[in-house]
Design a protein around this nucleic acid. Structure first.
Lengths: 229, 229, 229, 229
DNA sequence: AATGAATGAGATTTCATTCAT
DNA sequence: CATGAATGAAATCTCATTCAT
């Protein structure tokens, strides 16, 4: 089979990565053997090694794919004018994907990659690129929204971005542990949470009147918490 | 037959689990070999197999330890009268631990256990027990607070509990990827987030515009507190 | 079916053998892969297999080339009238070649063929043909010189031929281990050695008789014994 | 089988090396598989890898053994007072060994090591140590004999040592190609050759030109050949 | 209880060769 | 004749576990 088109080559590559993803989701990164991938893909060991030099490189390729897909999703959203819309778009992008079984399979592998990143510098690099990039983008979007006075300036952009990302990753874990968990109720709480977090601060002088008194009041709780530390 | 004291036996067991945890944190659950654990522990293979029937059982024991520790932390908090205090206690318990290097090492292994849980039913069971239990507790605490009218009834207790847990697990991941991340700023945003999420809803009638303003209520105070940052 | 000229075919064949020789010299007979030869030659696997049915046949062809070249060199020399001149010619033929880098490369492969001959009957056959033939020739030349009374009859022709060949092969090895070894000083000693070996025996009676005379005697007898061989 | 004696360990090591030598002699360094060695030794793969980290290290160990044995043989001889006796001793040591089937087997492997040395730096190192050391020793012995006026000063010690070694290695090759070759006739010619090579030069005046003058010329020619280089 | 050498199934990877195009 | 992707047998090495001492 000589002289084949690039698209043929690409198809084979995808065939391998899909098979590998299926195996990894089923058996785990380490338990899945090359033979498993061979069987799943319908190719021969030699064929696979024509496309990837090692099992590790297959893993890297899978990590890479994931990372680039997420990156572009966020970059898209960034173009939107206001933060609220952008966040909504990002939220939709990430959470609605989760309903797709294929995406869940990829997320399963994603969790394994988190573990793998601890020991494998290349995977670590890829995973971090897939997290740090989006986080920086988010953080910048927040800062800009602060400049535009859309949201309170008191929010730490980096920490806020981290919180947003955490709410997603954390939920991905929960979905992994229990596939029946519904996405929607979670999203509802999450929305409410973000909405209030980003809401403008009141500078009322009216009813609650005391203004400074209230500060003591409400602030107290969060403040107190801090203090003991 | 050499008969030894129970405390001797326990010490050996700990010795093995500590060594294994170190190896797993360093090399990963699969890459770490029994020989690694043998070397790290200073014992012999045979000795180790006198205490644990297999590598897997060592992993299970480590998962168990973790799970029971977290469980008791939450059960403690549950005894507190109001939700705010209970949450504060829980938050402190989980997040301040993270400053401890030994705990971070355990969390590293914890991430690997998340991945392992996908394939290993026993580990899955243990991990889920460590998550579902606390989540149920949290959920119940929320429900009770709603009954006590401490917090809005519109919140879905389960989803809210999930969100809380997600913000912790998600941050654990971020710490794993970058050890230099500061805990405090994250906690500050998280506090503010929860505070506002749980704040009483305004029942204003009329102008939507106010809604956002009022939403600021609770948040505001917490915001001012922020200022010291 | 594209029909091409014989010279085209020959050129391709040489191209392959040259590339293979380069690879074998660089990597060794076993470590050099067909892919190496493919890369080195600039041809495709399929093309190479059009000219040689297997890697082994390439090796055989290389061994063949070598053997026939050496054979003809000796046959040439044989035509000379006296042993001394013939030996000189042979010696020049073999040793002066060694200065040529290309020839050294071939000798490198030659050493590998010596090892390969142990296990591969075909290679063994070819190598032996390349050694036994020349040795027989040498041996016959020596016998004839003895008949012509050019050299002592006490020399065992076969053993003498073997010694001559050994001095060459042995030096080839030394050159292989250290490319900087000078050929000239070696040749000088070798010349002197052969010159004296072939010199007429002294028929002195008396002093020298003591030392090695007896030994010489023994040798003589053994030689006669040999003759039946 | 814990806590075994050092001699037990040594026996196992030898067992492996013996099995490996047998396999290598039979199949060649590359064709012999670890499984062959496993079968031949009667041990398991794991057991073998407890003693040697890789197939290559087994090869190195075999090369090492060989080298050290030869080294000590020569060092022994060196202690003898005069060159003639020392050489005789060395010659006996090397050549009479060759009658031993086990030694022949080792020599077979030795030839493979010569080939292997080309590509494997470690083997190269070991082989060279096994050659250069003895050659230096020989060379020094020759120089000292020259100082003692035992042998002519006109001989280049290094080249002479090389010649001696070559006559051995070259013969080892011939034995490898044809196991039936008799050692004795070869030795006889070799003895005669060395004896005359080392014999005092005749300082006859007169007939120098007549007898072997031409031969001397021959030697010269080789020199001339050199020159153009 | 401890030791640690031995086990052996099984994992990854290689590479000579084929054959559809 | 040439191409080069595919094949798949086989090779090296690993490592959890055992068990005689």
């Amino acid at each position: 089979m000589p002289k084949v088109s690039q698209s043929y080559l690409d198809a084979r590559r995808s065939q391998i990565l899909d098979a590998a993803t299926a195996c990894f989701a089923r058996e785990g990164l380490h338990r899945a053997t090359m033979q498993d991938i061979v069987s799943e893909s319908g190719l021969s060991p030699g064929a696979i090694y024509n496309y990837f030099a090692s099992k590790e490189q297959i893993i890297e390729a899978i990590a890479d794919e994931r990372q680039s897909k997420e990156g572009s999703l966020i970059r898209e959203a960034q173009k939107l004018s206001d933060l609220t819309n952008a966040l909504r778009r990002i939220r939709d992008g990430f959470f609605t994907q989760l309903e797709d079984p294929k995406e869940r399979r990829r997320r399963r592998v994603g969790i394994q990659l988190w573990a793998e990143a601890q020991r494998n510098p290349k995977i670590r690099e890829i995973v971090r690129r897939g997290i740090d990039g989006p986080r920086d983008l988010l953080s910048r979007m927040i800062t800009e929204a602060q400049i535009r006075r859309e949201i309170p300036r008191s929010l730490d952009p980096d920490a806020t971005a981290r919180l947003m990302i955490a709410t997603f990753h954390g939920f991905v874990l929960q979905l992994d542990w229990d596939e029946t968990v519904a996405v929607e109720p979670y999203l509802k709480v999450l929305d409410r949470c973000l909405e209030r977090l980003l809401a403008p601060e009141e500078r009322k002088q009216g009813k609650r009147g005391t203004r400074r008194g209230s500060k003591g009041d409400a602030g107290t709780s969060s403040h107190r918490v801090k203090r003991r530390q």
